[in-house]
Deep mutational scan, measured.
Amino acid sequence: MGFKLLSKLLVYLTASIMAIASPLAFSVDSSGEYPTVSEIPVGEVRLYQIADGVWSHIATQSFDGAVYPSNGLIVRDGDELLLIDTAWGAKNTAALLAEIEKQIGLPVTRAVSTHFHDDRVGGVDVLRAAGVATYASPSTRRLAEVEGNEIPTHSLEGLSSSGDAVRFGPVELFYPGAAHSTDNLIVYVPSASVLYGGCAIYELSRTSAGNVADADLAEWPTSIERIQQHYPEAQFVIPGHGLPGGLDLLKHTTNVVKAHTNRSVVE
């Protein structure tokens, strides 16, 4: 069995187990497998329904001669939608809004960016022009300005110390501490036991640490421990890039980060 097929099978099995364990909360999309990078042309966006009122959005972007996937989250909030992270750029984010209108038909009224990198804030200006209120932590807003990236308009308070959590509509926002970046936030959907790890969490097929220019490698494993301790009931975990899975993604990420750190020390 090929690795790609095995990865998709694991996603399907995880979703099936969740649907059985929580039949009222989960209505997993039966329309197909989780979209992969090879299936999404740059400039297009796919939506994948995880649970009743919960979707991931998947886009792709060219970077350094390669094409990478990027995940975000959409959560229903009454007759409105909360968006977590842009679709990595203005063109993708405009396509995301169009796809949401086509498939869901509810307005996106608020959006949260989970850290300051372009795959999370690139497209904020498109959201703002569409009347979406954009939010991020003060740290993310400051770092985005320093980096020359787009800056969300509103500040999220109460997320300055490791372990801080605040309720934001249908989700809980959690600051686990520094990891992929010093400002990275985690998003949890309690009604569906869905954990969105953003770039602080890796997919299972990833074996290298990737972009760690703004990471705190020493603190990252401790931050992941905080996530595990705060959300032990999480059933569906979405990484910032690639295929979702279960809580095993947290341990896998820790292993990859520690291996990278150990290699760096040896070198």
Rank of each mutant, 00 (worst) to 15 (best):
D52C: 06
D216N: 12
A111M: 10
P239L: 04
F3A: 08
V265T: 13
V187L: 03
I224V: 11
P152C: 01
P176Y: 00
E157Y: 11
Y12A: 13
P221K: 08
L249A: 00
E225V: 11
A200D: 03
I151V: 13
I17W: 13
D183R: 01
S31H: 08
D77F: 07
N262A: 13
T182G: 10
P23W: 13
K258T: 13
P221E: 10
L96I: 05
V28H: 14
C199A: 00
H180D: 02
S264W: 09
V266W: 13
H154D: 07
I238F: 05
Y135W: 09
K102S: 13
I227Q: 03
G242T: 05
T254Q: 11
R128C: 07
S264G: 13
S113R: 03
S137Q: 07
G105W: 05
A21S: 12
H241A: 00
L73T: 01
P244A: 06
V132R: 01
I100Q: 04
V54E: 02
S181A: 06
Q49P: 14
A200N: 02
E39H: 12
G158S: 07
A144V: 07
R120S: 05
R120A: 05
N255W: 13
L47P: 08
W88D: 00
S205G: 10
H115G: 00
H241T: 00
C199W: 05
H260W: 07
I40W: 08
Y196W: 01
F116T: 00
M18K: 12
S223R: 01
F174V: 02
V212F: 06
S205E: 14
D64V: 08
I151S: 07
S193P: 04
T60Y: 09
H117N: 03
L250W: 01
G158E: 07
D79L: 09
I58R: 05
N211P: 11
A19P: 14
D85H: 05
H180W: 01
R120D: 02
G197A: 08
K102F: 07
G242H: 05
V194A: 06
G105Y: 08
Y196S: 01
T207N: 14
V187S: 00
P23I: 09
A136M: 03
H180V: 00
A218R: 12
A133R: 13
H180C: 01
D216F: 04
G123N: 05
L247T: 14
V132K: 03
E172C: 03
A15D: 09
K251R: 13
V237F: 04
V265C: 05
D79S: 11
L250P: 06
E267K: 13
S160Y: 10
G169V: 04
S31K: 10
V146S: 14
A90W: 08
H57N: 04
G246F: 02
V194D: 01
A94K: 14
V212M: 09
S113W: 04
L185F: 05
E33V: 10
Q61E: 06
D216H: 07
E233L: 12
E80W: 05
R226W: 07
W88L: 00
A130N: 14
S56V: 15
I17R: 09
F26M: 15
Q49K: 13
K258Q: 14
A21H: 12
L243K: 15
L159N: 01
P232T: 09
T261V: 14
L47Y: 02
V212H: 08
R76N: 05
P239C: 00
T153P: 06
F174H: 02
H117Y: 04
C199T: 02
V42N: 14
R110I: 08
A213W: 07
T36M: 12
W55P: 01
G89A: 02
L9I: 15
E150M: 03
K102E: 12
D119N: 05
T93A: 03
S208C: 06
S160T: 13
Y188W: 14
D164L: 06
L185H: 02
D125E: 13
E150W: 02
S223E: 00
D29W: 12
F26D: 15
V11P: 15
V265M: 11
S70Y: 04
G242W: 04
P176K: 01
G105K: 13
E33C: 07
G240V: 04
V189F: 04
L247W: 15
L173K: 03
N262Q: 11
G177W: 03
A59H: 07
L47Q: 03
F63T: 09
P244N: 01
R46E: 08
L10D: 14
T261D: 12
L250S: 00
V237S: 01
P170F: 04
L217N: 04
H117R: 03
I74Y: 05
E233V: 11
L106T: 08
G163Q: 06
S162E: 14
R110C: 06
N71C: 02
S16C: 15
L249S: 06
Q228F: 05
G177Y: 02
H241G: 00
L159M: 06
T14I: 09
V28S: 12
S38M: 13
W55E: 00
P170Y: 03
A87K: 00
K8S: 12
D79M: 10
S162Q: 12
G210E: 08
A234D: 01
P170G: 06
V171N: 02
V108D: 02
T109G: 11
H57F: 03
V45G: 03
V67W: 10
I17G: 13
A129H: 11
D119W: 00
N71K: 05
S208I: 12
S162H: 14
N149F: 09
T182D: 13
L217S: 03
N262P: 11
S155T: 14
I201W: 02
G53H: 09
H241F: 00
G245V: 03
A209I: 08
A259N: 11
P152T: 03
I227L: 07
P170Q: 06
T140R: 03
A218S: 13
I50W: 07
D125W: 06
S22C: 10
S161Y: 12
H117M: 00
A129Y: 15
S56G: 15
L82E: 03
T114K: 04
L47V: 14
H230V: 09
E80R: 08
A95T: 11
D119E: 04
S70D: 02
T253F: 02
S30Y: 11
A98P: 06
Q61K: 13
D85F: 00
V45P: 11
S191H: 15
L83E: 00
D118M: 06
V124K: 02
S30M: 15
R120E: 02
